[in-house]
Design a binder for these strands. Structure first.
Lengths: 330, 330
DNA sequence: AACATGTTCGCAAACGTTTGCGGAAACCTT
DNA sequence: AAGGTTTCCGCAAACGTTTGCGAACATGTT
């Protein structure tokens, strides 16, 4: 028995379509016994309202789009996992779209979100996205857009992200407290705002505390690059006593290099990372890190989205507080 | 400028809705200059056909559902990542639904897929799912269901999964070819069917080749357990020349132990794993492993899905051939 | 008996799209 | 000039749902 519609129910019950429709939503306009009759039959034949028809009529949907560079990333994994739960509990579904860190595909995905008239979009932009006007245009068309994790620097938009500055400050304070004097700090691509914020806060903290530590800040765009960087700097005799990793991606490269060089943690070298939390547990000793978990962020992003849908028009930048998780690598 | 529809285009152009609709799809029924005019204006005002209306009319959608226990898993990550690409290239989108390994939520998710009249569903069932009738009922309603990874034992359904036996055979053959004589093999929980299949095939292969290798098979339910196991067996002077890990989860624990004990690979100990492929790259040297990647599986599942949509009614059980990826750990 | 009020239900339009059918005009054939 | 063909376009119905409006009837009030 394929699609059972209101019409079929109406015919079976000798009622009009409108009455059946109203009965199913407990409208007081229809007699209580009639309601019972209708609902009983509906349950019997497993009636499901046609979502397309409803969406067409209301011009609303119960689906959110999630546009990310790629799903294969622990942070996005925890973010999406948490977001999906929130969505499900609120009767929404999640559509996942990967951009492959390609702004062209990102734009194409955005077009699809618009075409599908989704209820809202969560987006973590690619590292190369420099025009966010297409996103803002969606907002004008009343499709809320919540930027998360990697967000544009543009002011007037909803952003939910890790408190990059606070995380970097905490990292720097941790290093200062541990009296590290020669620090190799590896940051991500310099044009990313996340990198800029972390780098700036990191350096400012050393200045603020009047630290005499030598800090060598380098940039690395990938795991492979950070591997090379560490091989170059720690391969021959060196003076570093700790390596700071701005991200999991970098941490993995650094740890590979440490293993390659046979460095023992924390004797030969200390490690401190900003991380989502999974990767640090893969090593011995467990890596000490500043946590930037996607779980909390997802909950914040979702409630912000609901607020937007409910009509909140002002924009907000929300930040999640970082926490230091002590391992044995410092 | 909110929603621009065919009607608005028609008014602007002094044409009928039907003509505009046909012009946009290059119907020969409409004069070529008219087509140009229409398309030009459509592009100018950024017209997008209303998906709901189309879906309602055709009773078809361009969305697939993916029901999995949880997204936080490297295998599902690679599977979904790959599946999303395939889907996108074919004009489809993916809706992700997590069951949290709870059959009740799984059923609820299934209901939502039906209600949203998705084009098809990919599902990896929970470890506790014992009634697959709800899934089969969807198939009857012409919503194809492709089971992947964790599949029901029921015959008459579409399944795509890793060839567990073949992977274990390949692992054993690799060890035999490398003339390993003292093997510590760590498997997962003994009650899981995946463990049983791999263990049996592993042992049978040693018998079949008449190998004289000493094989010690142990079970471990988690990363922490496999860590302990290795600490116990490799901590004091031992005779093992290689550790075999049935899964990524186990590999991580084993590698932690190897690092803790300061073992150098492959000099002090060899490592061979069955893995999704990401984890082995986190270490130096890169771990040699039998690949059970979600990528290939996703492509197989997707093409099977397309076949089902195209009308193929017969069911199939597809297995992905495992491949040995050489690292430097053997 | 006249009127107001309340209860229960159906009609019809609307959401945006697609498509079979037929109409009008233009052109060609004899 | 009559008939046939082609070209171009519009009418209207359909997909399934929701909802304002009003119809029909019953009940309560003077």
């Amino acid at each position: 028995m394929p699609d059972v519609t209101l019409k079929k129910l109406a015919e079976l019950l000798n009622l009009s379509i409108s009455t059946v429709s109203r009965a199913l939503k407990d409208h007081t306009d229809v007699a209580i016994e009639t309601r019972q009759r209708v609902k009983q039959l509906a349950a019997m034949v497993d009636y499901e309202p046609n979502t397309y028809a409803i969406n067409l009529r209301t011009n609303l949907s119960r689906e959110f789009g999630v546009i990310i560079p790629g799903i294969a990333n622990d942070f996005y994994q925890s973010f999406i996992s948490s977001l999906e739960e929130e969505a499900r509990h609120n009767g929404y579904s999640l559509i996942i779209l990967q951009s492959g860190d390609d702004p062209v595909i990102e734009l194409e995905n955005l077009r699809r979100c618009k075409q599908n008239r989704l209820a809202g979009i969560f987006v973590s932009i690619t590292s190369k996205t420099n025009d966010i006007n297409p996103f803002l245009r969606l907002v004008e068309q009343h499709i809320p857009v919540i930027f998360f994790d990697i967000v544009p620097s543009f002011e007037a938009c909803n952003k939910v992200c890790v408190d990059d500055a606070a995380a970097a400050v905490l990292a720097a304070e941790t290093l200062i407290a541990q009296k590290k004097k020669n620090i190799l700090a590896i940051f991500g691509k310099s044009q990313l705002s996340i990198t800029q914020k972390r780098l700036q806060a990191f350096n400012e903290t050393f200045s603020k505390y009047g630290s005499d530590a030598q800090v060598c800040c380098l940039h690395s765009g990938s795991t492979a690059e950070s591997f090379e960087t560490v091989m170059d700097h720690l391969g021959s005799p060196h003076q570093y006593d700790v390596v700071f990793c701005m991200s999991d991606e970098i941490l993995i490269g650094v740890m590979k290099a440490a293993q390659t060089l046979g460095l023992v943690l924390p004797k030969d070298i200390g490690i401190l990372a900003i991380s989502e939390g999974i990767i640090p547990t893969y090593y011995f000793p467990r890596i000490t890190y500043i946590e930037t978990s996607g779980f909390k962020l997802a909950k914040m992003a979702f409630s912000r989205m609901l607020a937007c849908i409910a009509g909140s028009s002002y924009v907000q930048e929300l930040k999640s507080e970082p926490v230091l998780i002590a391992g044995g690598s410092l």
